[in-house]
Design a protein around this nucleic acid. Sequence first.
RNA 1: UGGGGGAUCGUCUAAUGGUAGGACAUCAGACUCUGGAUCUGAGUGUCUAGGUUCAAAUCCUAGUCCCCCAGCCA
Length: 566
Amino acid sequence: MNKGEEKPLDFIREIVKKDLEAGVFNGRVHTRFPPEPNGYLHIGHAKAISIDFGIAEEFGGLCNLRMDDTNPTKEEAEYVSAIIEDVRWLGYDWGDRLTYASDYYEQMYQYAEELIKKGLAYVCELTPEELREYRGSLTEPGRESPYRARSVEENLVLFRRMKAGEFPDGTKTLRAKIDMASPNLNMRDPVMYRIVHASHYRTGNAWCIYPTYDWAHGLEDSIEGITHSLCTLEFEDHRPLYDWFLEKLGVHHPRQIEFARLNLTYTVLSKRILQRLVQEGYVSGWDDPRLPTLRGMRRRGYPPEAIRDFCARIGVAKTDSVVDYALLEHCVREVLNKKCQRVMAVLRPLRVVIENYPEDRKEELEAINNPEDPSAGTRKIPFSRVIYIEQDDFMEEPAPKFYRLAPGREVRLRYAYFIKCHGYHKDRNGRIVELRCTYDPDTRGGNAPDGRKVKATLHWVSAEEALKVEVRLYDRLFLKEDPLDFPEGSDFVANLNPHSLTVLTNCLAEPCLLSAKPWETYQFERLGYFCVDPDSSESRLVFNRTVDLKDEWARIKKQYLKEKQG
RNA sequence: UGGGGGAUCGUCUAAUGGUAGGACAUCAGACUCUGGAUCUGAGUGUCUAGGUUCAAAUCCUAGUCCCCCAGCCA
Protein backbone atom coordinates (compact mmCIF):
# COMPACT_ATOMS: atom_id res chain seq x y z
CA MET A 1 0.00 0.00 0.00
CA ASN A 2 1.46 3.33 -1.02
CA LYS A 3 1.32 6.53 0.96
CA GLY A 4 -1.85 8.44 0.44
CA GLU A 5 -3.82 5.39 -0.53
CA GLU A 6 -6.76 4.43 1.61
CA LYS A 7 -6.40 1.44 3.85
CA PRO A 8 -8.08 -1.44 2.02
CA LEU A 9 -11.51 -2.31 3.34
CA ASP A 10 -12.30 -5.71 4.77
CA PHE A 11 -15.03 -7.73 3.09
CA ILE A 12 -17.77 -6.51 5.44
CA ARG A 13 -16.93 -2.84 5.03
CA GLU A 14 -16.82 -3.48 1.30
CA ILE A 15 -20.39 -4.79 1.40
CA VAL A 16 -21.59 -1.97 3.63
CA LYS A 17 -20.01 0.58 1.33
CA LYS A 18 -21.66 -0.95 -1.71
CA ASP A 19 -25.03 -1.08 0.04
CA LEU A 20 -24.63 2.55 0.93
CA GLU A 21 -23.78 3.49 -2.64
CA ALA A 22 -26.67 1.46 -3.99
CA GLY A 23 -29.04 3.01 -1.48
CA VAL A 24 -30.05 -0.41 -0.21
CA PHE A 25 -31.14 0.75 3.23
CA ASN A 26 -31.91 4.31 2.26
CA GLY A 27 -28.33 5.25 2.94
CA ARG A 28 -28.49 4.11 6.53
CA VAL A 29 -26.00 2.03 8.49
CA HIS A 30 -27.21 0.66 11.79
CA THR A 31 -25.49 -2.25 13.55
CA ARG A 32 -25.81 -3.84 16.93
CA PHE A 33 -23.70 -5.72 19.46
CA PRO A 34 -26.00 -8.38 20.91
CA PRO A 35 -24.42 -10.27 23.84
CA GLU A 36 -26.46 -12.65 25.93
CA PRO A 37 -26.17 -11.53 29.56
CA ASN A 38 -25.08 -14.94 30.79
CA GLY A 39 -21.38 -14.33 31.25
CA TYR A 40 -18.56 -11.85 31.14
CA LEU A 41 -17.16 -10.30 27.99
CA HIS A 42 -13.75 -11.38 26.74
CA ILE A 43 -11.28 -10.34 24.06
CA GLY A 44 -13.28 -12.29 21.47
CA HIS A 45 -16.25 -10.06 22.18
CA ALA A 46 -13.92 -7.08 21.88
CA LYS A 47 -13.36 -8.07 18.26
CA ALA A 48 -17.09 -8.17 17.62
CA ILE A 49 -17.62 -4.91 19.47
CA SER A 50 -14.92 -3.21 17.47
CA ILE A 51 -16.49 -4.43 14.23
CA ASP A 52 -20.07 -3.55 15.19
CA PHE A 53 -19.35 -0.16 16.70
CA GLY A 54 -16.43 0.58 14.41
CA ILE A 55 -18.34 0.09 11.18
CA ALA A 56 -21.29 2.14 12.40
CA GLU A 57 -18.96 4.95 13.37
CA GLU A 58 -16.96 4.90 10.14
CA PHE A 59 -20.03 5.00 7.94
CA GLY A 60 -21.82 7.65 9.94
CA GLY A 61 -24.28 5.17 11.39
CA LEU A 62 -25.41 3.93 14.76
CA CYS A 63 -24.76 0.86 16.85
CA ASN A 64 -27.09 -0.47 19.52
CA LEU A 65 -26.00 -2.33 22.62
CA ARG A 66 -28.56 -5.09 22.90
CA MET A 67 -29.02 -7.69 25.59
CA ASP A 68 -30.06 -10.82 23.75
CA ASP A 69 -31.98 -12.18 26.69
CA THR A 70 -34.30 -14.93 25.52
CA ASN A 71 -33.38 -17.63 28.03
CA PRO A 72 -34.60 -17.00 31.61
CA THR A 73 -32.64 -19.89 33.05
CA LYS A 74 -29.25 -18.49 32.14
CA GLU A 75 -29.41 -14.75 32.30
CA GLU A 76 -28.85 -12.38 35.21
CA ALA A 77 -28.98 -8.65 35.82
CA GLU A 78 -25.44 -8.78 37.21
CA TYR A 79 -24.15 -9.68 33.77
CA VAL A 80 -26.02 -6.80 32.19
CA SER A 81 -24.25 -4.24 34.33
CA ALA A 82 -20.90 -5.95 33.81
CA ILE A 83 -21.38 -5.92 30.04
CA ILE A 84 -22.34 -2.26 30.06
CA GLU A 85 -19.31 -1.43 32.14
CA ASP A 86 -16.95 -3.39 29.93
CA VAL A 87 -18.18 -2.00 26.62
CA ARG A 88 -17.97 1.50 28.04
CA TRP A 89 -14.48 0.81 29.35
CA LEU A 90 -13.44 -0.23 25.87
CA GLY A 91 -14.47 3.23 24.81
CA TYR A 92 -17.73 2.78 22.93
CA ASP A 93 -20.98 4.66 23.26
CA TRP A 94 -24.51 3.61 22.32
CA GLY A 95 -26.30 6.78 23.30
CA ASP A 96 -29.80 5.92 24.49
CA ARG A 97 -29.87 2.72 22.49
CA LEU A 98 -29.41 0.13 25.19
CA THR A 99 -32.04 -2.42 24.20
CA TYR A 100 -33.34 -5.76 25.41
CA ALA A 101 -34.77 -8.64 23.44
CA SER A 102 -37.12 -9.13 26.37
CA ASP A 103 -38.71 -5.77 25.59
CA TYR A 104 -39.96 -7.27 22.34
CA TYR A 105 -41.59 -10.40 23.77
CA GLU A 106 -45.12 -9.13 23.15
CA GLN A 107 -44.38 -8.10 19.61
CA MET A 108 -42.63 -11.35 18.88
CA TYR A 109 -45.67 -13.17 20.18
CA GLN A 110 -47.92 -11.22 17.83
CA TYR A 111 -45.63 -12.06 14.92
CA ALA A 112 -45.82 -15.71 15.92
CA GLU A 113 -49.63 -15.63 15.78
CA GLU A 114 -49.33 -14.02 12.39
CA LEU A 115 -47.19 -16.87 11.16
CA ILE A 116 -49.67 -19.38 12.57
CA LYS A 117 -52.49 -17.61 10.75
CA LYS A 118 -50.50 -17.86 7.56
CA GLY A 119 -50.26 -21.57 8.12
CA LEU A 120 -46.52 -21.33 8.58
CA ALA A 121 -46.21 -22.39 12.20
CA TYR A 122 -47.78 -25.10 14.34
CA VAL A 123 -47.90 -26.34 17.88
CA CYS A 124 -45.99 -29.59 18.20
CA GLU A 125 -46.32 -32.07 21.04
CA LEU A 126 -43.27 -34.17 20.34
CA THR A 127 -41.05 -34.71 23.39
CA PRO A 128 -37.47 -33.44 23.14
CA GLU A 129 -36.32 -37.01 22.46
CA GLU A 130 -38.92 -37.55 19.78
CA LEU A 131 -38.10 -34.22 18.23
CA ARG A 132 -34.50 -35.28 17.89
CA GLU A 133 -35.47 -38.56 16.26
CA TYR A 134 -37.85 -36.85 13.87
CA ARG A 135 -35.19 -34.36 12.84
CA GLY A 136 -33.25 -37.03 11.02
CA SER A 137 -29.47 -36.80 10.69
CA LEU A 138 -26.82 -35.08 8.65
CA THR A 139 -27.29 -37.58 5.87
CA GLU A 140 -30.92 -38.62 6.32
CA PRO A 141 -33.97 -36.39 5.92
CA GLY A 142 -36.26 -35.84 8.89
CA ARG A 143 -39.87 -36.92 9.28
CA GLU A 144 -42.83 -34.66 9.56
CA SER A 145 -44.36 -34.29 12.99
CA PRO A 146 -47.80 -35.91 13.40
CA TYR A 147 -48.98 -32.51 14.71
CA ARG A 148 -47.86 -30.67 11.62
CA ALA A 149 -51.24 -30.68 9.88
CA ARG A 150 -53.28 -29.03 12.62
CA SER A 151 -55.72 -26.35 11.60
CA VAL A 152 -54.91 -22.71 12.05
CA GLU A 153 -57.66 -22.43 14.65
CA GLU A 154 -56.40 -25.34 16.68
CA ASN A 155 -52.84 -24.01 16.55
CA LEU A 156 -53.98 -20.60 17.69
CA VAL A 157 -55.93 -22.02 20.62
CA LEU A 158 -53.09 -24.28 21.65
CA PHE A 159 -50.49 -21.53 21.33
CA ARG A 160 -52.61 -19.17 23.45
CA ARG A 161 -52.99 -21.88 26.05
CA MET A 162 -49.23 -22.39 26.00
CA LYS A 163 -48.83 -18.72 26.71
CA ALA A 164 -51.46 -18.89 29.43
CA GLY A 165 -49.38 -21.43 31.28
CA GLU A 166 -51.67 -24.42 30.88
CA PHE A 167 -48.95 -26.87 29.95
CA PRO A 168 -45.86 -28.08 31.77
CA ASP A 169 -42.31 -27.40 30.56
CA GLY A 170 -41.22 -29.27 27.50
CA THR A 171 -44.62 -30.67 26.55
CA LYS A 172 -45.26 -28.42 23.59
CA THR A 173 -43.37 -26.17 21.21
CA LEU A 174 -44.28 -23.79 18.47
CA ARG A 175 -42.50 -24.77 15.29
CA ALA A 176 -42.07 -23.14 11.94
CA LYS A 177 -43.49 -25.20 9.09
CA ILE A 178 -40.65 -25.27 6.58
CA ASP A 179 -39.13 -28.48 5.23
CA MET A 180 -38.25 -31.62 7.15
CA ALA A 181 -36.21 -32.85 4.21
CA SER A 182 -34.02 -29.77 3.95
CA PRO A 183 -30.31 -30.58 3.82
CA ASN A 184 -29.91 -27.64 6.19
CA LEU A 185 -30.97 -28.98 9.57
CA ASN A 186 -31.91 -25.50 10.71
CA MET A 187 -34.76 -25.51 8.22
CA ARG A 188 -36.30 -28.76 9.48
CA ASP A 189 -39.24 -27.12 11.24
CA PRO A 190 -37.18 -25.26 13.86
CA VAL A 191 -38.60 -24.53 17.29
CA MET A 192 -39.74 -20.93 17.76
CA TYR A 193 -41.12 -21.12 21.29
CA ARG A 194 -40.53 -23.43 24.20
CA ILE A 195 -42.41 -23.64 27.48
CA VAL A 196 -40.24 -22.62 30.44
CA HIS A 197 -41.89 -21.86 33.74
CA ALA A 198 -39.01 -19.83 35.05
CA SER A 199 -38.73 -16.31 36.32
CA HIS A 200 -36.92 -13.99 33.94
CA TYR A 201 -34.58 -11.41 35.43
CA ARG A 202 -36.49 -8.63 33.66
CA THR A 203 -39.96 -9.84 32.81
CA GLY A 204 -40.43 -11.85 35.99
CA ASN A 205 -43.29 -14.31 35.64
CA ALA A 206 -45.07 -12.49 32.85
CA TRP A 207 -44.12 -15.21 30.40
CA CYS A 208 -43.82 -18.96 30.46
CA ILE A 209 -43.05 -19.32 26.77
CA TYR A 210 -39.75 -17.97 25.48
CA PRO A 211 -38.59 -17.42 21.92
CA THR A 212 -35.57 -19.31 20.62
CA TYR A 213 -32.55 -17.54 19.16
CA ASP A 214 -33.46 -18.22 15.55
CA TRP A 215 -36.94 -16.86 15.92
CA ALA A 216 -35.99 -13.92 18.10
CA HIS A 217 -32.80 -12.61 16.64
CA GLY A 218 -33.99 -11.52 13.24
CA LEU A 219 -37.03 -9.91 14.82
CA GLU A 220 -34.87 -7.97 17.25
CA ASP A 221 -32.79 -6.75 14.33
CA SER A 222 -35.86 -5.93 12.30
CA ILE A 223 -37.66 -4.08 15.08
CA GLU A 224 -34.60 -1.96 15.75
CA GLY A 225 -34.17 -1.12 12.09
CA ILE A 226 -30.76 -2.75 11.94
CA THR A 227 -29.24 -2.70 8.46
CA HIS A 228 -26.26 -5.00 8.85
CA SER A 229 -26.46 -7.84 11.33
CA LEU A 230 -22.89 -8.95 11.88
CA CYS A 231 -22.18 -12.22 13.60
CA THR A 232 -19.73 -15.10 13.70
CA LEU A 233 -19.30 -17.92 11.21
CA GLU A 234 -21.27 -20.57 13.07
CA PHE A 235 -24.44 -18.66 12.23
CA GLU A 236 -23.81 -18.91 8.54
CA ASP A 237 -26.19 -21.79 8.02
CA HIS A 238 -28.80 -20.07 10.18
CA ARG A 239 -28.99 -17.27 7.64
CA PRO A 240 -31.53 -19.03 5.39
CA LEU A 241 -33.78 -19.29 8.45
CA TYR A 242 -33.12 -15.67 9.47
CA ASP A 243 -34.13 -14.67 5.97
CA TRP A 244 -37.14 -17.02 5.88
CA PHE A 245 -38.78 -15.57 9.00
CA LEU A 246 -38.35 -11.97 7.95
CA GLU A 247 -39.48 -12.64 4.43
CA LYS A 248 -42.62 -14.53 5.47
CA LEU A 249 -43.47 -11.73 7.88
CA GLY A 250 -42.75 -9.11 5.24
CA VAL A 251 -40.96 -6.86 7.70
CA HIS A 252 -37.74 -4.82 7.59
CA HIS A 253 -35.04 -7.25 6.58
CA PRO A 254 -31.43 -6.58 7.59
CA ARG A 255 -28.50 -8.26 5.89
CA GLN A 256 -26.71 -10.82 8.01
CA ILE A 257 -22.97 -11.11 7.41
CA GLU A 258 -20.72 -13.58 9.18
CA PHE A 259 -17.04 -13.27 10.08
CA ALA A 260 -14.52 -15.55 11.79
CA ARG A 261 -14.35 -15.39 15.54
CA LEU A 262 -11.10 -14.59 17.28
CA ASN A 263 -8.77 -17.24 18.61
CA LEU A 264 -5.58 -16.46 20.50
CA THR A 265 -2.54 -18.64 21.16
CA TYR A 266 -2.16 -19.92 24.73
CA THR A 267 -5.69 -18.77 25.45
CA VAL A 268 -9.19 -20.20 25.66
CA LEU A 269 -12.21 -18.09 24.82
CA SER A 270 -14.82 -20.76 25.33
CA LYS A 271 -17.47 -19.66 27.79
CA ARG A 272 -17.70 -23.15 29.22
CA ILE A 273 -13.98 -23.46 29.91
CA LEU A 274 -13.67 -19.94 31.24
CA GLN A 275 -16.44 -20.83 33.64
CA ARG A 276 -14.64 -23.94 34.78
CA LEU A 277 -11.41 -22.05 35.32
CA VAL A 278 -13.25 -19.71 37.65
CA GLN A 279 -15.55 -22.20 39.35
CA GLU A 280 -12.89 -24.81 39.95
CA GLY A 281 -10.54 -22.24 41.36
CA TYR A 282 -7.75 -22.32 38.79
CA VAL A 283 -7.99 -18.54 38.81
CA SER A 284 -9.20 -16.14 41.45
CA GLY A 285 -12.32 -14.89 39.68
CA TRP A 286 -13.66 -13.41 36.47
CA ASP A 287 -11.27 -10.50 36.81
CA ASP A 288 -8.19 -12.62 37.41
CA PRO A 289 -5.42 -10.86 35.47
CA ARG A 290 -4.53 -14.11 33.70
CA LEU A 291 -7.95 -14.38 32.10
CA PRO A 292 -8.75 -13.05 28.62
CA THR A 293 -11.90 -11.44 30.01
CA LEU A 294 -12.06 -7.69 29.57
CA ARG A 295 -12.20 -7.37 33.35
CA GLY A 296 -9.14 -9.56 33.68
CA MET A 297 -7.25 -7.56 31.11
CA ARG A 298 -8.25 -4.32 32.75
CA ARG A 299 -6.98 -5.57 36.08
CA ARG A 300 -3.83 -6.78 34.36
CA GLY A 301 -3.28 -3.21 33.20
CA TYR A 302 -4.08 -3.57 29.50
CA PRO A 303 -5.23 -0.16 28.27
CA PRO A 304 -8.50 -0.18 26.29
CA GLU A 305 -6.87 1.68 23.40
CA ALA A 306 -4.38 -1.17 23.06
CA ILE A 307 -7.20 -3.68 22.78
CA ARG A 308 -8.92 -1.52 20.20
CA ASP A 309 -5.70 -1.20 18.23
CA PHE A 310 -5.25 -4.96 18.42
CA CYS A 311 -8.75 -5.53 17.04
CA ALA A 312 -8.03 -3.14 14.20
CA ARG A 313 -4.80 -4.92 13.35
CA ILE A 314 -6.10 -8.48 13.28
CA GLY A 315 -8.54 -7.59 10.53
CA VAL A 316 -11.84 -9.15 9.58
CA ALA A 317 -12.13 -12.22 7.37
CA LYS A 318 -13.83 -15.58 7.08
CA THR A 319 -10.75 -17.73 7.54
CA ASP A 320 -10.48 -19.60 10.82
CA SER A 321 -7.46 -18.09 12.48
CA VAL A 322 -5.38 -18.12 15.61
CA VAL A 323 -3.74 -14.81 16.37
CA ASP A 324 -0.34 -14.78 18.04
CA TYR A 325 -0.66 -13.50 21.60
CA ALA A 326 2.57 -11.57 20.99
CA LEU A 327 0.63 -9.16 18.80
CA LEU A 328 -1.64 -8.23 21.70
CA GLU A 329 1.39 -7.72 23.92
CA HIS A 330 2.97 -5.57 21.26
CA CYS A 331 -0.10 -3.33 21.19
CA VAL A 332 -0.08 -3.09 24.97
CA ARG A 333 3.61 -2.14 25.12
CA GLU A 334 3.18 0.43 22.41
CA VAL A 335 0.51 2.32 24.34
CA LEU A 336 2.18 1.95 27.71
CA ASN A 337 5.60 3.02 26.45
CA LYS A 338 4.21 6.36 25.40
CA LYS A 339 2.28 7.21 28.51
CA CYS A 340 3.74 5.46 31.54
CA GLN A 341 5.87 7.13 34.15
CA ARG A 342 9.19 5.36 34.69
CA VAL A 343 10.13 4.35 38.18
CA MET A 344 12.74 2.10 39.74
CA ALA A 345 11.78 -1.00 41.68
CA VAL A 346 13.72 -4.10 42.64
CA LEU A 347 11.84 -7.38 42.49
CA ARG A 348 14.44 -9.67 44.07
CA PRO A 349 16.67 -7.42 46.14
CA LEU A 350 20.40 -7.87 46.61
CA ARG A 351 22.01 -5.63 49.22
CA VAL A 352 24.89 -3.47 48.09
CA VAL A 353 27.14 -1.53 50.44
CA ILE A 354 29.10 1.29 48.88
CA GLU A 355 32.12 1.26 51.13
CA ASN A 356 33.55 4.65 50.24
CA TYR A 357 30.24 6.46 50.54
CA PRO A 358 29.97 8.19 53.95
CA GLU A 359 27.50 6.56 56.33
CA ASP A 360 25.85 9.78 57.35
CA ARG A 361 25.43 11.07 53.84
CA LYS A 362 22.21 11.29 51.83
CA GLU A 363 21.59 12.97 48.53
CA GLU A 364 18.90 13.34 45.94
CA LEU A 365 19.40 12.64 42.29
CA GLU A 366 17.31 13.77 39.39
CA ALA A 367 15.54 11.24 37.23
CA ILE A 368 13.53 11.58 34.01
CA ASN A 369 9.91 10.57 34.35
CA ASN A 370 9.37 9.52 30.77
CA PRO A 371 11.97 9.76 28.03
CA GLU A 372 9.16 9.41 25.47
CA ASP A 373 7.41 12.46 26.88
CA PRO A 374 9.55 15.40 28.01
CA SER A 375 6.50 17.14 29.41
CA ALA A 376 6.31 14.46 32.10
CA GLY A 377 9.23 16.22 33.78
CA THR A 378 11.66 14.89 36.35
CA ARG A 379 11.69 13.73 39.96
CA LYS A 380 14.19 13.29 42.80
CA ILE A 381 15.42 9.92 43.98
CA PRO A 382 17.23 9.39 47.30
CA PHE A 383 20.69 7.83 47.26
CA SER A 384 22.72 6.51 50.17
CA ARG A 385 25.45 4.12 51.26
CA VAL A 386 23.28 1.03 51.26
CA ILE A 387 21.19 0.27 48.24
CA TYR A 388 19.51 -2.73 46.65
CA ILE A 389 19.91 -3.98 43.12
CA GLU A 390 18.34 -6.92 41.29
CA GLN A 391 19.79 -10.32 42.10
CA ASP A 392 19.83 -11.08 38.37
CA ASP A 393 22.12 -8.13 37.78
CA PHE A 394 25.09 -9.79 39.46
CA MET A 395 26.97 -12.93 38.50
CA GLU A 396 29.81 -14.33 40.50
CA GLU A 397 31.17 -15.88 37.34
CA PRO A 398 29.73 -13.87 34.47
CA ALA A 399 28.43 -15.78 31.49
CA PRO A 400 29.53 -14.71 28.01
CA LYS A 401 27.80 -11.50 26.92
CA PHE A 402 26.64 -10.78 30.46
CA TYR A 403 27.39 -7.06 30.75
CA ARG A 404 26.13 -6.46 34.25
CA LEU A 405 27.86 -6.47 37.59
CA ALA A 406 30.51 -9.04 38.53
CA PRO A 407 33.59 -9.04 40.74
CA GLY A 408 35.99 -6.35 39.54
CA ARG A 409 33.45 -4.93 37.12
CA GLU A 410 32.17 -1.38 36.88
CA VAL A 411 28.57 -0.50 35.98
CA ARG A 412 26.34 2.53 36.19
CA LEU A 413 23.55 2.97 38.68
CA ARG A 414 20.86 4.71 36.71
CA TYR A 415 20.82 8.48 37.30
CA ALA A 416 23.43 8.00 40.05
CA TYR A 417 27.06 6.86 39.98
CA PHE A 418 29.39 4.29 38.54
CA ILE A 419 30.09 1.57 41.05
CA LYS A 420 32.67 -1.20 41.03
CA CYS A 421 32.34 -4.53 42.81
CA HIS A 422 35.20 -5.55 45.07
CA GLY A 423 33.71 -8.42 46.98
CA TYR A 424 30.65 -10.20 48.22
CA HIS A 425 29.31 -12.18 51.14
CA LYS A 426 27.47 -15.47 51.05
CA ASP A 427 25.23 -17.05 53.63
CA ARG A 428 25.78 -20.59 54.90
CA ASN A 429 23.83 -21.96 51.93
CA GLY A 430 26.23 -20.33 49.53
CA ARG A 431 23.75 -17.70 48.39
CA ILE A 432 25.13 -14.28 47.71
CA VAL A 433 23.57 -11.90 50.20
CA GLU A 434 25.62 -8.74 49.93
CA LEU A 435 27.95 -6.97 47.53
CA ARG A 436 30.79 -4.70 48.58
CA CYS A 437 31.34 -1.91 46.11
CA THR A 438 32.95 1.49 45.75
CA TYR A 439 31.61 4.40 43.83
CA ASP A 440 33.30 7.10 41.80
CA PRO A 441 32.18 10.52 43.11
CA ASP A 442 33.11 12.12 39.77
CA THR A 443 30.39 10.16 37.96
CA ARG A 444 27.48 11.78 39.75
CA GLY A 445 24.44 11.82 37.51
CA GLY A 446 25.76 8.90 35.53
CA ASN A 447 28.60 10.15 33.34
CA ALA A 448 32.35 9.90 33.76
CA PRO A 449 34.29 13.13 33.09
CA ASP A 450 37.16 11.10 31.69
CA GLY A 451 34.79 9.66 29.13
CA ARG A 452 35.11 6.06 30.17
CA LYS A 453 32.16 3.86 29.37
CA VAL A 454 30.38 1.08 31.16
CA LYS A 455 28.43 -1.64 29.40
CA ALA A 456 25.48 -1.78 31.74
CA THR A 457 23.14 0.47 33.66
CA LEU A 458 21.35 -1.02 36.65
CA HIS A 459 18.21 0.04 38.42
CA TRP A 460 18.39 0.30 42.18
CA VAL A 461 16.65 1.64 45.30
CA SER A 462 18.04 3.27 48.40
CA ALA A 463 17.69 0.85 51.33
CA GLU A 464 16.34 3.21 53.91
CA GLU A 465 13.76 5.05 51.82
CA ALA A 466 12.56 2.10 49.77
CA LEU A 467 8.93 1.07 49.89
CA LYS A 468 8.22 -2.55 50.53
CA VAL A 469 5.67 -3.70 47.98
CA GLU A 470 4.09 -6.87 46.68
CA VAL A 471 4.43 -7.75 43.02
CA ARG A 472 2.42 -10.39 41.21
CA LEU A 473 4.14 -11.76 38.15
CA TYR A 474 1.83 -13.27 35.58
CA ASP A 475 2.71 -15.66 32.85
CA ARG A 476 0.51 -17.33 30.28
CA LEU A 477 -2.21 -19.49 31.81
CA PHE A 478 -1.52 -22.39 29.45
CA LEU A 479 1.69 -24.08 28.43
CA LYS A 480 0.43 -25.08 25.01
CA GLU A 481 -0.26 -22.79 22.11
CA ASP A 482 -3.53 -24.66 21.73
CA PRO A 483 -4.77 -25.35 25.26
CA LEU A 484 -7.41 -27.69 23.87
CA ASP A 485 -4.75 -29.96 22.43
CA PHE A 486 -4.54 -32.50 25.24
CA PRO A 487 -4.00 -36.27 25.34
CA GLU A 488 -7.02 -38.55 25.29
CA GLY A 489 -8.51 -39.16 28.67
CA SER A 490 -7.30 -35.89 30.15
CA ASP A 491 -8.60 -32.37 29.64
CA PHE A 492 -7.41 -28.79 29.29
CA VAL A 493 -6.34 -28.79 32.93
CA ALA A 494 -3.35 -30.88 31.83
CA ASN A 495 -2.13 -27.86 29.85
CA LEU A 496 -2.38 -25.33 32.67
CA ASN A 497 0.87 -23.51 33.43
CA PRO A 498 1.69 -24.22 37.08
CA HIS A 499 3.77 -21.05 37.17
CA SER A 500 1.24 -18.66 35.71
CA LEU A 501 1.34 -16.66 38.94
CA THR A 502 4.38 -15.82 41.06
CA VAL A 503 3.84 -13.62 44.08
CA LEU A 504 6.83 -11.64 45.27
CA THR A 505 6.31 -10.10 48.68
CA ASN A 506 9.69 -8.55 49.38
CA CYS A 507 10.03 -6.14 46.51
CA LEU A 508 11.40 -2.66 47.02
CA ALA A 509 10.28 0.44 45.17
CA GLU A 510 11.40 4.01 45.07
CA PRO A 511 9.51 6.29 47.49
CA CYS A 512 7.63 8.30 44.87
CA LEU A 513 5.26 5.35 44.50
CA LEU A 514 3.82 6.16 47.91
CA SER A 515 1.16 8.19 46.15
CA ALA A 516 0.34 5.51 43.57
CA LYS A 517 -3.37 4.79 43.14
CA PRO A 518 -5.17 1.61 42.10
CA TRP A 519 -5.32 1.02 38.32
CA GLU A 520 -2.34 3.31 37.64
CA THR A 521 0.36 1.78 35.47
CA TYR A 522 4.09 2.45 35.76
CA GLN A 523 7.09 1.22 33.96
CA PHE A 524 9.56 -0.37 36.35
CA GLU A 525 12.72 0.41 34.46
CA ARG A 526 14.32 -2.55 32.76
CA LEU A 527 11.56 -4.86 34.03
CA GLY A 528 8.22 -4.11 32.49
CA TYR A 529 4.91 -2.39 33.07
CA PHE A 530 3.15 -2.80 36.39
CA CYS A 531 -0.23 -1.56 37.48
CA VAL A 532 -1.51 -0.99 40.97
CA ASP A 533 -3.95 -3.72 41.93
CA PRO A 534 -7.15 -2.78 43.77
CA ASP A 535 -6.04 -5.25 46.46
CA SER A 536 -3.59 -2.54 47.54
CA SER A 537 -4.07 -0.97 50.95
CA GLU A 538 -2.65 2.15 52.52
CA SER A 539 0.03 0.12 54.20
CA ARG A 540 0.87 -2.13 51.30
CA LEU A 541 0.95 -1.57 47.58
CA VAL A 542 0.29 -4.52 45.29
CA PHE A 543 1.42 -4.42 41.67
CA ASN A 544 0.41 -6.64 38.77
CA ARG A 545 2.90 -7.14 36.01
CA THR A 546 1.03 -6.11 32.90
CA VAL A 547 3.70 -7.18 30.44
CA ASP A 548 7.47 -7.39 30.57
CA LEU A 549 9.84 -5.31 28.52
CA LYS A 550 11.53 -6.96 25.58
CA ASP A 551 14.63 -8.44 27.09
CA GLU A 552 17.76 -8.87 24.98
CA TRP A 553 19.72 -10.51 27.76
CA ALA A 554 16.96 -13.03 28.46
CA ARG A 555 17.15 -13.96 24.80
CA ILE A 556 20.92 -14.36 24.81
CA LYS A 557 20.83 -16.29 28.03
CA LYS A 558 18.28 -18.68 26.60
CA GLN A 559 20.37 -19.20 23.47
CA TYR A 560 23.47 -19.73 25.61
CA LEU A 561 21.79 -22.25 27.86
CA LYS A 562 20.47 -24.12 24.85
CA GLU A 563 23.94 -24.31 23.26
CA LYS A 564 25.44 -25.43 26.54
CA GLN A 565 22.90 -28.21 26.81
CA GLY A 566 23.29 -29.72 23.42
C1' U B 1 -21.21 -40.94 2.45
C1' G B 2 -26.02 -34.29 3.47
C1' G B 3 -25.57 -29.04 3.78
C1' G B 4 -22.86 -24.50 4.73
C1' G B 5 -17.99 -22.12 4.77
C1' G B 6 -12.58 -21.71 4.21
C1' A B 7 -7.29 -22.49 2.36
C1' U B 8 -1.52 -16.47 0.64
C1' C B 9 5.37 -15.85 4.80
C1' G B 10 5.95 -19.05 11.48
C1' U B 11 1.15 -15.94 12.65
C1' C B 12 -2.63 -12.39 11.10
C1' U B 13 -3.86 -9.85 6.74
C1' A B 14 -3.56 -7.14 1.53
C1' A B 15 -3.29 -7.66 -3.77
C1' U B 16 -10.56 -8.12 -7.13
C1' G B 17 -6.25 -11.02 -14.61
C1' G B 18 -0.66 -7.07 -14.69
C1' U B 19 6.12 -6.27 -9.88
C1' A B 20 2.80 -11.23 -4.15
C1' G B 21 2.80 -6.03 -0.03
C1' G B 22 2.16 -4.76 5.34
C1' A B 23 2.08 -5.94 10.56
C1' C B 24 3.60 -9.20 14.52
C1' A B 25 7.27 -12.88 15.39
C1' U B 26 12.39 -14.40 14.08
C1' C B 27 17.53 -13.24 12.77
C1' A B 28 21.54 -9.50 11.88
C1' G B 29 23.31 -4.54 12.62
C1' A B 30 23.18 0.88 14.30
C1' C B 31 22.10 3.87 18.42
C1' U B 32 21.30 4.18 23.61
C1' C B 33 22.37 6.44 31.17
C1' U B 34 16.38 1.12 30.46
C1' G B 35 20.23 -5.22 26.95
C1' G B 36 13.66 -0.62 26.84
C1' A B 37 12.32 2.74 22.97
C1' U B 38 13.98 4.18 18.06
C1' C B 39 16.34 3.22 13.24
C1' U B 40 18.38 -0.05 9.23
C1' G B 41 18.63 -4.63 6.93
C1' A B 42 17.56 -10.06 6.05
C1' G B 43 14.98 -14.55 5.36
C1' U B 44 10.52 -17.07 4.85
C1' G B 45 4.38 -17.54 1.45
C1' U B 46 -0.12 -18.21 -3.03
C1' C B 47 -3.06 -26.37 -0.68
C1' U B 48 -2.14 -30.06 -5.09
C1' A B 49 -2.49 -31.40 -10.35
C1' G B 50 -4.00 -29.98 -14.93
C1' G B 51 -6.06 -26.12 -18.21
C1' U B 52 -7.36 -20.91 -20.32
C1' U B 53 -4.19 -16.41 -21.14
C1' C B 54 1.09 -12.42 -23.58
C1' A B 55 0.18 -12.62 -18.22
C1' A B 56 -3.24 -16.50 -12.87
C1' A B 57 -3.17 -15.96 -5.69
C1' U B 58 -7.20 -14.20 -8.82
C1' C B 59 -10.68 -17.54 -14.23
C1' C B 60 -11.95 -23.09 -15.53
C1' U B 61 -11.62 -28.57 -14.27
C1' A B 62 -10.44 -32.39 -10.91
C1' G B 63 -8.62 -33.41 -6.23
C1' U B 64 -6.69 -32.63 -0.99
C1' C B 65 -7.06 -30.66 3.78
C1' C B 66 -9.51 -27.67 7.71
C1' C B 67 -13.91 -25.50 10.27
C1' C B 68 -19.35 -25.36 11.42
C1' C B 69 -24.38 -27.84 11.73
C1' A B 70 -28.37 -33.36 14.19
C1' G B 71 -30.19 -27.82 21.89
C1' C B 72 -36.90 -26.78 23.51
C1' C B 73 -28.44 -22.74 24.05
C1' A B 74 -26.87 -18.28 21.78
